[in-house]
Design a protein around this nucleic acid. Structure first.
Lengths: 359, 359
DNA sequence: GCAGCGTACCGAATCGATTCGATCCTCTCA
DNA sequence: TGAGAGGATCGAATCGATTCGGTACGCTGC
């Protein structure tokens, strides 16, 4: 027996109304008499009809209610960073308010197998997170598709609205805080300089292709020109630990302050400092960046710049809904706020005078 | 001027072929001569046609290439736990291999606004993670839709294939390891006993509604009957720390081993033990569960049970593809493996003899 | 030279719902 | 009682692509 799923036409027939009437009962776009509604609903119940087929509906309406989120290579990497997680949470919230869901897309395109990509996914819009290389070309495709695109903290070329952070100014602000405490021998622990770059000191000629890293680096240099910087391999506690170990083992006078470019790195730095028998902030002050909850830092409270991570996601959602409505969406620049914790303090009296100038 | 997007019919017309031929050029389902392919492709380029509309294609084919993943309330909570993240990564991988993408769905349904839910999302199948309460009813809807559903570590009622873990046996195995080292005064630090339950000792009458917690608890009790157990509020380092602080402050002889139900909890326990001036494993042995990478634990190596987190996701993907192919998918039970680290050791000689029997 | 065969392409039906103008009915008011 | 108004319902076109049975054509073999 041919038991295929009931369609709205079946429901309409059983209810004794037209398909169009049955449709509006479900969509509610047009007033329907109570009697009719009851008839249709009970016919639906009888047939086991649970609502319009989303596929057919999205074809007809031209909207699928899905927003593609392009994350990096793997899910596990994208969600390792709490900032990304919180941002995605904000995005989910912002899009849910407009009735859209999030479709996770990996950007290592070109793979066969029909996995939905930025060129084949049934999405109404796309959000690019971090925006890796190699995505540019898919992006052109998307623009050919005439689909709204927003980039969060990354560069996707002209015409694509961006959600930006005041990375440079924010890093400058917290660096000034450290300088005002009297610190002169300062070292940075930075985020990766380029995709897949190994850990190590950043030389003058080191190319810094990751914009976040570059901007925060600039902000620190605005305050501490020529400051030494050690790039971590990733934003994580373990990498921060390893970086701090390397920094402390370096020749020359020990720094009195270490500025990390993320809270995770800072957490690792703090632990390394403590493991070296030093005290934070008495011997070394440490600052972070992000202001998100980092598991395992308690009971310390990081001095850091709080960035509006969830707001980034919501702003992206707002930009998308504007574009979907046919309006032009402008780039948004969000600002971070200084938060004082107990990981920074005045430079110690007995600190020997600086030999060179810094680092 | 009416500049609507080109359709495959437009391309076919410009190329001088029929729509059906143009279609197969893109889908590759039928052999096409090189000459025709070239004609169609260049016509497509000329018109800016970037490929078939996914909405229309999914209507016709009856497949959208999307799998809905129902996570808990918020994205940020779901991704806080590395086990979930890794599992999702495995799922993404498994689904990608079959050409499907992951649509994130929150399960606090019933909300208005048209947000895609388990009842309206254009998904070919659903994966329920953790399976919160209140989802059951949506689930019936889904079964009415005749859509494959798989549950990972949760119970969704009869007829729904589950991906399970040998939680009880695994916890028993590592407990036996601890017992074989001579430990008798043992305490557990468990995962939450119920959604939203506060931290505290688990009494005999405490209901344990979370199956993972209950199963692992049973496994430990198989080896240490009547063992004391303190439930944390969440699987995190900070909560593990807090739980261990409470455990160490309890009356009676100090335990010589603490069995945590997750690696994150174990990491917190270790730190609390160290902060109390004790040494792991000399004074107190600590075990975890999960075997995933926990940021900030290095350089210690946790003695733990390694669960195949990524494999859970892949197994779910396999089950779904089987169901999509019309076959019945059976539940899968995966097993964990013991991994020895340096956080457990033999009970100390000078440990005072146990006064009661345990805890 | 003709039956037989395989390949490449075409036409038309179909997937399931939505939308909008037209129609019909009922109620109100002059 | 008839015109008018307004609300509920209907019909038919449409969204864009896929699929399958069938046709036409070129080639082989006897």
């Amino acid at each position: 027996m041919n038991m295929r799923r009931a369609t709205i036409a079946d429901v309409a027939r059983v209810a004794g109304v037209s398909a169009s009437t049955a449709s509006v009962v479900f969509s509610g776009k047009t007033p329907v008499s109570d009697a009719t509604r009851t008839k249709v609903l009970s016919a639906a119940g009888e047939l086991g009809y649970t609502g319009p087929d989303p596929r057919a509906a999205s074809l007809r309406r031209g909207r699928s209610g899905i927003v593609g989120v392009v994350i990096g290579d793997r899910v596990r990497n994208a969600f390792r960073d709490p900032v990304t997680t919180v941002m995605l949470d904000g995005l989910a919230e912002g899009m849910a308010a407009q009735g859209a869901g999030l479709l996770l897309l990996r950007d290592d395109a070109g793979r066969e197998g029909g996995e939905p990509s930025v060129r084949t996914a049934p999405a109404d819009a796309f959000v690019l997170v971090g925006c890796s290389t190699g995505l540019r070309e898919s992006l052109d495709t998307v623009r050919g598709r005439d689909i709204p695109v927003v980039v969060i903290e990354g560069d996707a070329g002209a015409g694509v609205p961006q959600i930006l952070l005041d990375n440079r100014e924010a890093q400058g602000e917290i660096a000034r805080h450290v300088r005002d405490l009297g610190h002169r021998r300062v070292v940075l622990v930075t985020l990766p300089t380029a995709a897949g770059s190994g850990p190590g000191w950043i030389e003058d000629r080191t190319p810094v292709t990751v914009t976040v890293t570059r901007d925060r680096l600039s902000g620190a240099r605005d305050v501490f020109p020529g400051v030494g910087a050690y790039a971590a391999r990733r934003s994580s506690i373990d990498e921060g630990y390893a970086a701090a170990v390397a920094v402390l083992a370096a020749d020359g006078a020990r720094p009195t302050a270490i500025l990390a470019q993320s809270d995770l790195l800072a957490a690792g730095v703090i632990r390394a400092v403590q493991d070296a028998g030093l005290v934070v902030p008495d011997d070394i002050s440490v600052t972070g960046f992000d202001g998100v909850w980092v598991d395992g830092v308690a009971p310390l409270e990081l001095t850091t710049m709080v960035q509006p991570a969830a707001e980034k996601g919501r702003a992206a959602g707002a930009a998308i809904s504007a574009m979907l409505a046919g309006e032009a969406a402008a780039s948004v620049r969000l600002t971070s706020a200084f938060r004082s914790g107990n990981t920074t303090g005045p430079v110690r009296e007995d600190a020997e005078p600086e030999p060179g100038s810094s680092a």
